[in-house]
Write a protein that binds this DNA or RNA. Structure first.
Lengths: 182, 182
DNA sequence: GCACTGACTCTACAGCCGTTGACCGACACC
DNA sequence: GGTGTCGGTCAACGGCTGTAGAGTCAGTGC
């Protein structure tokens, strides 16, 4: 089966994006070179430029994710939704999220994106918390999940490595509940 | 008052270290250049090399911190000790800690150091938790504090920015307790 | 006072990076 | 079946970076 020109173009673009996501997630923005992305995709570095314009644009395209799910209603569902945040229900976090998280402390634009994404989640959570300090609680919930994700997925903390996801959820659940109930 | 040669040397070394810590904490390892550190210290770039050998060695010297305090005994003191971890009692985290945290996701050696430091804290906590899954709880406690520190100090999450430290501690305290009590 | 040590600077190098423009060859269109 | 279009490659440039070596000059010891 032979592919059309447009199809081939789109395929290689996706291949480049996949390689970029993988490397950005593994090494962060500064340490992944366009040459490395191109090599991983089996392509010339100049082609990456031709497709995405610049390294920053490539990063932007690589980390843009699907819009987040709508916020759930009750506190029970809220906690389960937060546990999903860690990818505990599905098979881990997306490459996009990992790439974003890996670079958020060093790449200014990634930091801005992360702030925006976390801010949106805080707002989503706050509107479902019934307490005078709802925003503070939502912010702490969000950063707590961020910390567990960073430790687990990016730093590979030993004691979190082989823990089955159910057990993680089991221990974490009362913690999250304690932040929701005033 | 005129300074001796040895004194002058040590002063400029400290000045370089201070500038390095500041820039590493602000921009991370990859984005701070030796030239920038030298300029901030009012010194020639070659002098930085002469003092510290290499950029990696400079980083190593810049982030090495005082040994952590011994682990406290009871669960009450444990929680207060963890809140100190965020610099909630003193005026924020040290520049060393910030520099280390800023680079831990992108610099391999910083990641290794962070793993070691967090691992040590996990062990310290685990030995004071009386539960079959003490290590897991200790790891979650540690990564939770890490997340709050990252969100607060490095990402500057809006909703955590103007919160007085006491209020942070007040909301966080029951969360930590809920992880300590089985 | 004079040689000398050592803190500090100047200049330069080599390598890697993002990015560019010219080029090529196969597919699509008429 | 020629021709133009376009996905893809090649070679190169300019800038920045870490780093090295020679040189400078003030403080030190005799």
């Amino acid at each position: 089966m032979t592919l059309s020109r447009a199809e081939r173009r789109q395929r290689t673009e996706q291949r480049i994006l996949q390689s970029a996501r993988m490397l950005f997630a593994e090494r962060g923005f500064e340490r992944t070179t366009i040459r490395a992305v191109a090599a991983a995709a089996g392509v010339d570095p100049a082609l990456v430029m031709q497709h995405f314009g610049s390294k920053d644009d490539l990063f932007r395209r690589a980390v843009q994710a699907a819009p987040p799910p709508e916020r759930p209603g009750g506190p029970e569902e809220l906690v389960e939704y937060l546990l999903d945040t860690l990818g505990l229900k599905m098979g881990g976090l997306s490459q996009q999220s990992l790439a974003m998280m890996r670079s958020m402390l060093t790449h200014p634009e990634a930091a801005e994106s992360a702030r925006a994404a976390l801010g949106a989640q805080i707002e989503r959570l706050a509107s479902a918390i019934d307490a005078p300090d709802a925003r503070l609680r939502a912010a702490l919930l969000t950063t707590i999940m961020l910390g567990v994700a960073v430790g687990h997925q990016l730093l590979d903390i030993e004691d979190l490595h082989d823990v089955p996801q159910q057990e993680l959820a089991r221990v974490l659940r009362p913690v999250l509940h304690s932040l929701l109930s005033s």
